[in-house]
Structure formats: structure tokens, C-alpha cells
């Protein structure tokens, strides 16, 4: 079952990339997806059951909308910091503790933090995420934890766990 899920994902990706239904293209895609599945099927998708749960896709959509909104707001913020003549930046690296357990959820959290402008994930070690922040507004851990990851974490818990 794990192998079939991975095969379907790679084959659909191939169909989107080529966007033709010619017979040769289909055969090449089939063979390439089969080889990839046999080579890497063992390592990924250890929790394949999660991919057939429609409720998760709904929460993923909500997450996407909130993420794009946050991204736009924060992008204007960074643009203001870059353009203003005095350059009001106060950079620093802070440590944030997250209570997500699965690896893929942590990966998505780190990617979301990197993509919201103003913060970049430097490293993830166990539960701690080290974040480079362009304007450190407070040094209190509880305040900045809520500000940086609070909103994403709640939704990611619903999507991935």
C-alpha cells in the first residue's frame, strides 16, 4: 500500500509536468515512476494512511490561506525596513520550543517560518528551533514563541497529527 501511494504521487506529478497523453510519454512516465517507487519506497511515507483522510486536506487549505496572508503582511514589513533611510533592523538568533512530534510536521513548520519574511530557520535540534529574526521585538521566550509559531502550530497539529 505504501508503494502504491508513492507510485500514484510520482505518476500524477509526471502527468502534470509533461501535460500530454501520448502513448510514449505515458510509458516513459510509468517506467520512471516504477523505478523510483522500487528504489525509494521503503524510506518515505511511513504513515500512508494519513494521505487518504479528506478532513486533513480541508485543514491544509485553511493553513494555506492563512500562510499566504501572513506572508504578504510580513513582506510589506520587510520592504519597509529595507527602503526606509534609517534601516530599523535589530537582528538576532532566538530559540523557540515547539511541541509538534512528527518529523514532517516539524519540517513544514520550519519551512513556513523560513517563508514568512523576517525570520529564517537556522537549525532544528530535537524540539528546539533556532530562528534568525530581523527585528527582535522582545527577549521574553513566551512572548516571541507565541508571536513566531503560535498560529501555524495549532493548524499543523490538525493537519499532520
Amino acid at each position: 500500500m505504501k508503494y502504491i501511494t508513492l507510485f500514484l504521487m510520482t505518476f500524477i506529478l509526471w502527468l502534470l509536468f509533461t501535460f500530454t497523453l501520448g502513448i510514449y510519454s505515458l510509458i516513459i512516465g510509468f517506467v520512471v515512476s516504477l523505478v523510483i517507487t522500487l528504489l525509494f519506497g521503503n524510506r518515505y511515507l511511513s504513515d500512508w494512511k494519513l494521505y487518504y483522510n479528506p478532513v486533513r486536506y480541508f485543514w491544509a487549505l485553511v493553513y494555506l490561506v492563512i500562510f499566504i496572508w501572513e506572508c504578504l503582511i510580513a513582506n510589506f514589513d520587510v520592504a519597509y525596513r529595507v527602503l526606509s533611510p534609517k534601516m530599523p533592523i535589530k537582528p538576532g538568533i532566538v530559540k523557540v520550543k515547539s511541541n509538534l512530534s512528527s518529523d514532517i510536521a516539524k519540517t513544514f513548520l520550519a519551512n513556513s517560518i523560513t517563508m514568512t519574511p523576517g525570520t529564517i530557520t537556522v537549525d532544528v535540534i530535537d524540539d528546539n528551533i533556532y530562528i534568525h529574526w530581523i527585528y527582535v521585538s522582545s527577549q521574553d521566550p513566551s512572548v516571541y514563541t507565541k508571536k513566531l509559531i503560535g498560529r501555524f502550530e495549532k493548524l499543523l497539529k490538525k493537519v499532520f497529527e
Partner: peptide, 8 residues
Amino acid sequence: DKTVVDEY
């Protein structure tokens, strides 16, 4: 030089 905190 403007960096305020470095916990890494």
C-alpha cells in the same frame, strides 16, 4: 554589530 541576541 547591531545583533542583540545569539542563542545558537
